[in-house]
Amino acid sequence: MSNINGLLSLKLLGFSFLSMSVGLLFMGLGRKVTARIQRRLGPPFYQAFLDVFKAFSKSSITHNYVMDLGIIMSLGGLIATAFFIPFAGYAVLGSSSIVIILYLMSIGYLGMAMGVSASGNPNATIGISRALALMLGYEIPIVMIVMAMMLTYGSSDLLTFATAQQGGFANWHIFKYPLGFLAIEISFQAMLGEAPYDHMIAPAEIASGPMVELSGKYLGIGFLLHAVQLYVETGLIVNLFLGGASTWYVFLLKQFAVYFTSMCINAVMARYRIEQGIAHLWKYAGTLALLQLFITRLGVF
């Protein structure tokens, strides 16, 4: 407990605001990218900020206290994950264990599941069950890749992986472990819930899934959730495969590059059915990750 002093809490507060605003900025830019692909002008890049402010200015309706609790737990879990992601080589809590990150990330989803299921809307329940089913699909490839990394470096620290890639492009894991990068790129699409894995939020099909009963401030928190999730997951990939970064703007640029790729795929793909999506993830991302694991082990021996 003595570790929690004033400076650290200030830092944590700053970090949570950083993760939210980076995520919101990316969301706006992503909408712009999609619009340009569809030959539209698109909204201004700060549109996501306007949306969130507006959502918080609306009145909102809650169904029971479990709903409030679940949403807050979800946001808390994701922000806690963000503390463990090294931002430009700086981990605010001093530790950046990937095991903790993977563990905390699922709290976000579980909180969301608890909150929106309490709202009682069947569409929300369908959406969240799809999200949890999809989680089975993408967690396995990710864990296999992380295992490969951990076996190589004998450590579970994300910062160790990032610093090991310093010294030029050739050291980046994207070139050292190309199969693993492909696998995690496919899984990333599913993690963010972008097409072709946007079963969870399928507006024309199940009326935006988990968000269906969220109104006003709850929807604002939903937006923030997505923003923090964006920050965490792009940060994870940058640290794992793109060599981390020593300065903040390089880190942000790399994060955006990852998100940009994702948005480009999202803009041109259609949606899988849920069982096709999971099968696809296991077949392709899973196989690639497994191959990567074997190759890495052979290289070690």
Binding site: R31, A35, L41, G42, P43, L50, P203
Partner: peptide, 10 residues
């Protein structure tokens, strides 16, 4: 969408 308007599901 350039005015920030978009369709919503519910």
């Amino acid at each position: 969408e350039r005015f920030g308007m978009g369709p919503m599901a519910t």
